[in-house]
C-alpha cells in the first residue's frame, strides 16, 4: 500500500498537506508525531474512513495492489474489507456475543459464512485471545477486560482476512501489561499482514515497527528504518521530537 500526494481537509482546514508514503508489505510501519499532526487522519484516509466525518474531504491517490482506492467508481465499503482498522478505544459491539463480534464483519455484508466456528477460532487464535475466551464465546464482548476487548477488535478485523491492518493508537487506553500483549501480537501479525500503527509512544514505535514515519503539522518530515530514525535522524525537527525537546 502506498499514498501519493495525499491531502485531507476538515472543512477549510487542511489536515494533510501532500503525504507520499509507502508501506512495505508484511512490515510494520509506525507513524509518530505530536497531537494534531495529522497521523490519525492519515491512516483514516487509507481505508476511506476520513470521509465518514461530515465536511471531510480527500485528494490524492492511495494505491492498494496498484489500484487507486480513490479512483471514481471504487466502492469504499469494498476497500474497508481489505484494509482493516483497529481504533484507539476498544469498541466491541455491545449487543453481540464474543463469537458474533468476530463474525460481525462477515455477517454485516449479509453473505453466508461457510464455516463460522472455524473462522471464529482462527481469528481469535491470530489475535492471541482464543485460550482466554474459548469457553465463554457466548458472553457479551463488553464483559472482557480492556486489553481483551482490544484483541477482540483485532480478531474482528482479522476475520475479514484483510491485506493491511491500520491501528490508530491501539494501546493508548490500555494498561502496560495489556499493551505488552498487543505489541507481542503485532510482532506475530507482521508475518502475514502489512501493518500501519499510529502511536504517541516512541518506545512503542521502537519496539514494534520496522519503519517509522515522523509527521509534523500535516506533513511527512522523515521516514526511515526505525533504528536509523531513532539513532540518526536526518531532520532537525525529528531529532528535537524524539529527544523530547517538543511535542
Amino acid at each position: 500500500m502506498a499514498a501519493h500526494d495525499l491531502h485531507a481537509w476538515f472543512g477549510a482546514n487542511e489536515a494533510l498537506k501532500g503525504i507520499t508514503l509507502a508501506f512495505p508489505e508484511t512490515r510494520v510501519t509506525a507513524i509518530i508525531g505530536p497531537s494534531g499532526c495529522g497521523k490519525s487522519t492519515f491512516v483514516r484516509c487509507l481505508n476511506r474512513m476520513h470521509e465518514v466525518v461530515p465536511g471531510a474531504r480527500v485528494a490524492g491517490r492511495v494505491a492498494l495492489d496498484g489500484q487507486d482506492i480513490y479512483a471514481p467508481g471504487v466502492n469504499p465499503v469494498r476497500v474497508r474489507r481489505r484494509v482493516g482498522m483497529v481504533f484507539q478505544k476498544p469498541n466491541p459491539f455491545p449487543t453481540m456475543s464474543i463469537r458474533e463480534n468476530v463474525l460481525a464483519g462477515l455477517r454485516l455484508s449479509g453473505e453466508p459464512v461457510p464455516d463460522p466456528a472455524g473462522t471464529v477460532e482462527k481469528a481469535l487464535r491470530q489475535a492471541a485471545l482464543w485460550d482466554e475466551v474459548r469457553d465463554v464465546l457466548k458472553r457479551t464482548g463488553s464483559s472482557l477486560s480492556g486489553g481483551q476487548q482490544q484483541r477482540l477488535c483485532i480478531a474482528r478485523a482479522l476475520a475479514l482476512e484483510p491485506e493491511v491492518l491500520l491501528m490508530d493508537e491501539p494501546c493508548s487506553a490500555l494498561d502496560p501489561i495489556a499493551t505488552a500483549r498487543i505489541e507481542e501480537l503485532i510482532h506475530e501479525l507482521r508475518e502475514r499482514y502489512t501493518i500501519a500503527i499510529v502511536t504517541h509512544n516512541m518506545q512503542q514505535a521502537a519496539r514494534v515497527a520496522d519503519f517509522t514515519a515522523f509527521f509534523y503539522q500535516g506533513e511527512l518530515v522523515e521516514v526511515d528504518r526505525t533504528d536509523v530514525l531513532f539513532t540518526h535522524p536526518n531532520n532537525r525537527k525529528t531529532e528535537d521530537y524524539i529527544t523530547g525537546r517538543f511535542g
Binding site: M49, R80, R81, L108, C153, A157
Partner: peptide, 13 residues
C-alpha cells in the same frame, strides 16, 4: 456511541 458506527463502517458495512 459514534465509535460503534465507525467500527461497523471500518468492517465494510
Amino acid at each position: 456511541p459514534h465509535s460503534l458506527r465507525e467500527a461497523s463502517f471500518a468492517l465494510g458495512a
